[in-house]
Design a protein around this nucleic acid. Structure first.
Lengths: 201, 201
DNA sequence: GGGTTTCTGTACCGACCGGTTAGGATCGTG
DNA sequence: CACGATCCTAACCGGTCGGTACAGAAACCC
């Protein structure tokens, strides 16, 4: 929206929406939905509450936008992993990407999709549901990719795509928790390798 | 404390401390530390704020007590698993216990130790740190148990107890997240079995 | 029953929560 | 330059947060 208009009427906003969203994403990533107060968010974004409301609507919509940005930014490894030629390589890229992103030097340890709102009070329910859907959706996409692998003969005929996807995502979520525990990249990659070692009989 | 005194002076409290703590534990389990308000907690406990403060000190100490109760109650499978005769059986019991506890019919899905405060704001930091220590401590105890297994000849001489413990706990934490996602007991146990299939070369 | 001790309920505290409103200041356009 | 749209600052909204002060009720000892 607003992109089609060549000449904008009224005073243009003074801050960069993308930059502000990036900052908000990091705060949500670090503190979770309920743990991130409006003061935390707007402080990091460098704008006032009013500007934030004008640009994003409210906290919940800001979180939704931040989650989208996370998906297309730090978590874009997931989409890229789906394009790997074999199911084995998909799984490897998925876990390697989760290890790298949850231990990004410049960012908070862990995964926004996991620690954003695992448990929450009444007010955090929308964010909670959003993330449950996000995680289950990711699992579903892996399942579909594995189903394709069966069709292509890459995976054996009797392989169960849903089971395999569930397993890989379980490990990926575990890695996210361990990253939040402070484990290092090498340690996490080691666990990922172990999980992949018995990949199919 | 208080056990040595046979006759108590003053008015005895009208509620059962253990029962109240049990209720508080379930609220923390379901909503997390920050997501559980004092109103939620005291409402579920069936007492007033004043009584809660008199009996437990404050919210943080209530959480600590609740976590202890969780460790000795729903999560007691972990301590029992350590007494299994072989490392393989320890690992199996650990994952089976985590699957069962995170999908307890009467309780919230997931694990209090994981979703209690994975990410938090400033006020939730003590609880956050408490749980990081809880999870790392659990991993350490598994490592020690596996080290013993190496000493006893149960695990090969070149096995790395720390790596193995890290791997098992990573899967256990992943199971907790998946349980919070709504996955069922059979699905989780299936992933646990897959993780155990490549247990040692 | 008197005295002491501790519990319980109510009412209240300042701080902060997410969210809104009013009023200028500031920009692009005609 | 005037207009219209949007900006920013700042004060403010009711509600809730975790945490207390106080007074009365209830149970024990003597």
């Amino acid at each position: 929206m607003g992109v089609s208009r060549s000449t904008v009427i009224g005073r243009p906003r003074e801050f960069d929406v993308d930059e502000a969203l990036e900052c908000a994403m990091r705060v949500f990533w670090e503190r979770g939905y309920e743990g991130a107060s409006l003061a935390d968010l707007t402080g990091a974004m460098g704008i006032t509450k009013t500007s934030m409301y004008a640009a994003f609507g409210n906290k919940e919509q800001l979180f939704r936008k931040a989650l989208e940005r996370y998906t297309e930014g730090p978590a874009s490894y997931a989409a890229r992993a789906m394009e790997e030629p074999t199911a084995r390589q998909v799984a490897e890229a998925l876990l390697r990407g989760s290890v790298r992103t949850t231990t990004l030097p410049g960012g908070p340890p862990g995964c926004l999709g996991v620690q954003g709102a695992l448990a929450s009070g009444e007010g955090g329910r929308p964010a909670h549901d959003m993330l449950v859907a996000w995680r289950n959706d990711a699992t579903l996409r892996v399942e579909e990719r594995f189903r394709r692998a069966v069709d292509e003969g890459d995976l054996p005929e009797d392989a169960d795509p849903r089971r395999l996807a569930r397993y890989i995502m379980t490990v990926a979520f575990g890695i996210a928790v361990q990253a939040a525990n402070g484990l290092g990249r090498d340690e996490l990659q080691d666990s990922a390798d172990m999980a992949l070692r018995n990949w199919l009989p």
